[in-house]
Design a protein around this nucleic acid. Structure first.
Lengths: 158, 158
DNA sequence: GTTCCTGCAAAATTTTTGCATCAGT
DNA sequence: ACTGATGCAAAAATTTTGCAGGAAC
């Protein structure tokens, strides 16, 4: 039932790029170079990236996108619910494409090596939905983080 | 089954203070004023506080504890698993006493007013335990955050 | 042609570190 | 007394903001 190591299918990520660009346009915004390039970079990765990582990635690509623009694009995307933002480690926020509901995932973080990997579990989704109904809040989003030692660190260290 | 608004019983928080001081001593550290005062301030609150909030709270108490010491005490406590650290909003980390397993809770965050409130749900705990078994990771900790609009914001705005 | 977007540089915010002094054992 | 803890101030890291020039519509 639980599946680790299930990145997002490539086709789904391409769809997300188109969807994001359309949605930005529908919301009355323009399609500038920084926006297109940040969206493209996000779609190239399976799991969450920091603003700095996106900036470095884009710089390596050839011409750079200003770090301030990276932050502004991420803020815009988050406002339109096109990316989800995660704050795992206090220092930096990480972002990843918000895919259709059936494909969202949560994160396992290795307390030894810091590795982050995605997982999905239907039992948890159902339990969350139940708790959301019971709460006074009108819940429309949730994050789940599991911490432990990853397979590599467990075998390596003992 | 889900219970919002269940702070930690006062007796449990007092026990936590004693436990924390003992544990710090056992780990070979001294019992300085900053440590005792930060621990005391943490125990006075139901839910998570930022370093700045702790610092302000202590300043209001009379003599102040340096902000650097607040951070250092929190780092020490987190290392000994005496507090749990949360990174909800990228900018600031929040901390709260780590109580015995049956009493830990998770958080509802209002997307409108930013209010954070604790909740506990057995169904989620069971689902998490199941997913942890299924994962390759040796899971020993988890956070859950539900986002939505709190009762006040729902009635006020909507 | 207008308006919004972008990049640079500067500012703001949060957290960490260096160092001299003080307190706990 | 010795060693570690504390506070202040400075530094580092991340994110936000102001503004001038350029691109999208």
């Amino acid at each position: 039932m639980t599946s680790t190591d299930e990145g997002h299918p490539a086709a789904l990520r391409r769809d997300w790029v188109d969807h994001a660009i359309t949605r930005i346009s529908d919301a009355g915004h323009r399609s500038g170079a920084a926006r297109r390039r940040v969206i493209g970079a996000l779609a190239e990765h399976d799991c969450c990236l920091s603003a700095q990582e996106l900036h470095d990635h884009l710089k390596a690509d050839g011409r750079s996108v200003g770090i301030a623009s990276v932050y502004r694009v991420l803020e815009l995307l988050a406002g339109l619910h096109l990316v989800q933002r995660f704050d795992f480690d206090g220092g930096t926020s990480r972002y990843e494409p918000a895919l259709p509901d059936g494909h969202h995932h949560h994160h396992l973080i290795c307390t030894t090596c810091g590795d982050v990997s995605p997982f999905h579990d239907e039992g948890i989704e159902r339990a969350i939905a139940g708790a959301a109904d019971a709460a006074d809040y009108a819940v429309d989003d949730h994050d789940i983080v599991l911490r432990g030692r990853c397979p590599a660190c467990r075998s390596g260290v003992g």
